[in-house]
Amino acid sequence: MNLLELKNVTKHYLTGSEVVKALEDVTLEVKYGEFVVIMGPSGSGKSTLLSIIGGLNRPTSGTVVVDGIDIYSLSQEKLADFRREYIGFVFQSFYLIPYLTVLENVMLPLIVTDYTKEQKIAKAKEILERVGLSSKMKRFPDELSGGEQQRVAIARALVNEPLLILADEPTGNLDSLTGIEIMKLFKELNDSGKTIIVVTHNPENAKFADRCVYVKDGKLLGIEVLP
């Protein structure tokens, strides 16, 4: 069963009078519980691909189906609901909110849900425990190391129990050892059943995945199934 199905996805940007072809006719399928790495040099269109999968970036043509939902047939506001319920995002620069504590940052996606206050706190604490940051709940992001901040970001991505985790260069701002730690965390999450797509240009990261998808100049070059 496929969690994700991209069919003939094309994305063209208009910069001035010039058309930039960010993605050309990409077709891709990701199964439930898979761990996929998207590789490619910078400017290859891999981040654009991730944003299209995540419901942030409407493709010029083609369809994106997640868990049976043709997501770009949804309205802008419904798409926000979709992102909250189905997708967990992790970024290269963590993007934590500096004036909120670790616990509050993790609770952010829950604020606009119907959970009770106690449920929200319980969920956030549970996830923080899972990423190993229970002891730093009351800290602010700038009091944490890069690796710790990325763990908070991952906790935030997980707290809403999404089907799909999308990570854009999650190790890009970390030293190689911490990067491996983070990739290991993704692997653990994958082992516990989460579907994960990581965009990276670091071949080291590919080792953790089930499959590796290569992108260059907006085109899918090939898919490698890893041992």
Binding site: G54, F82, R84, F89, V112
Partner: peptide
């Protein structure tokens, strides 16, 4: 802008 971008990404609606 960035902070609002994050909130939008993680599923906040325009009216939020």
């Amino acid at each position: 802008t960035k902070e609002i971008g994050i909130l939008r990404t993680i599923g906040y609606k325009q009216n939020h």
